[in-house]
Every structure is written in C-alpha cells, then in structure tokens.
Amino acid sequence: MTAKWPAGRRRLFGALVHHVVRVAVAAVFVVPLLWVLAASLRVPGLAPPRAIEWMPNPATGSNYARIFVLVPMGTFMLNSLIVVGLAIPLTIVTASWAGFAVSQLPRRLRRRLVISAVLLLMVPSTALWLTRFLLVRQLMLIDTLWALILPALMGSSPFFVLLFYWTFQRIPEELFESARLDGAGALALWRRLAMPLALPTIAAVSVLTFSLYWNDFINPLLYLKSESHYTLPVGLQMLQQMDKTNWPLLMAAAVVMAAPVVLLFLSVQRLFWPEGRLAGFPVR
C-alpha cells in the first residue's frame, strides 16, 4: 500500500511507524512497574481486582505506613543506609586507587591487570559463597554489617576499577610529569590532579555502588542472623513470609525499596548514555 505513495509521504509514514514502535516498546518496559505501583495503593482486604486497574478506587496510601508498623522497616532502612554509607566512600577510595595505580603502570603489566579485571568481573558470586562464608565466620563477622561491607575493600567490583582506570588514562601524561617534577608523590597526584578530573566517574561509581549494596540480597541472607541487623532486602523477605497474600502491603514495600534506586538512576542517567561519554566509557 505504501509503495504507491510518493516518496515524501512514504518517509513520513515510516517516521510515524518508527515513532509508534518506540513509544510502544518503552511502554512495555514501564507498564509492569505501573501495575505494581497501582497494586500498592489498593485498600487491603478488598476483593482482588477483576480487571486491570491503573488507579485503584478507592485508593489509599496507608499501606506505606502499615509496613513500618508491621515490621521494623525503619531499622532495616537504617541498616541499609549504614552499609551503603560506609561502602560508597570505601569503594571510591580503593577503586580509584587501583584504577590510578593501573594507569601509571608499564604497558604490559597494565594490559594484564585490565584483562584480569574483566575476567574477575565475570566470576559469579555463587561460585564462591560457601567458602567465603567460612572465611567471614573465621573473621567473627557473622551477623555484623561489616560482613556486607567487606567487598568494598576490593573496590566492590572490578568494573569500578576499570571505570576509574579508563578515566585516568585519558588525562594527558604531561600533567602528571610536570606535577612529578614539582615533587608530588603518588598520593598527591591522585588527590590533587586525578580525582578532581574524575568527578563524573565518581558520581557514576557512587550511584552504582549505592544500588549494589542497597539491592544486595544474597550476602545478608547468608551472614545476618538477628532481625535487628537486617537490611531492607531480607526485611522484605520477612514481610513476605508473614503474609504471602497481602499484595497491597508487599507491593508498597517493593516500591519503598526500589524508589531510592530509581530516583538516583533517573538523576544521573545522562552519564550512562554513550553521548554523555561518562569520561572514558569502555568504547573508543
């Protein structure tokens, strides 16, 4: 049908189809999340919906208050915040140190470390958790929040080390040379020269670290025993076990847990798109 149209109109038609497809695809990804949001606003105890609801009638926000009463959500949230608050600065320091050191190494060694980090990045934690558990137990860190923060000592993820490395190696070598001639040591170079030039990377790694620790379910599941130490993910599981069918409450808890990560992501998403070129994105 389109073949009979003049070229101009055909192009217009193509652009229209393209646009509609883009909107539809985006909707497919967002709609399930909207369903969850709608479910969290239902009055608990009412008969379950018979048709899809975009906005429950009557709607209520009381589920959000109820979850804090039913389980110590406030404590869980505080624990999560403590973990995240300690993990982010630790990660920034160790990952940027490692990235900086790698960027200053001779070529061959640098290449080996970069490849080893890529491989390390792909080691699934499940392949390690049993013996890691025994180690944590040996360190007497079971049932403490420290057990959760431990990975921050290695920069949390080799990916963060790589991100810092990619950023630092784009800084012109002459800058470092002249600072070195002025007698600056490695730490001073890192603090005064490298880090101020890596602010977008620091922001990106902070956000990624936040979601890594905020979302972490497996480690608290393995290491935490007492309820007063629970972080949000295990707290959510606890809420689920209390009442498996109270969907409005469970969905409210899921929204509470997801909201900070979603907001953080939306506020920094520009950094992650290729045009934004998070200084030194892996592609060149």
């Binding site: 969850v36 979601s211 959510l236 899921a254 929204v255 847990m257 997801a258 992501f265």
Partner: peptide, 21 residues
Amino acid sequence: AAVYLPTVIPDVAYALAWLWI
C-alpha cells in the same frame, strides 16, 4: 530511561513485583 528502568529495580523488589504480576 524507560527501557533501562526495570534493570535498576532491586532483585527482591523485582521478584515480589513479578510474583504479583
């Protein structure tokens, strides 16, 4: 951003959400 959104949802919240869906 819409396409990326489900990826940033924490695993536990995501699992509960799909349990409902």
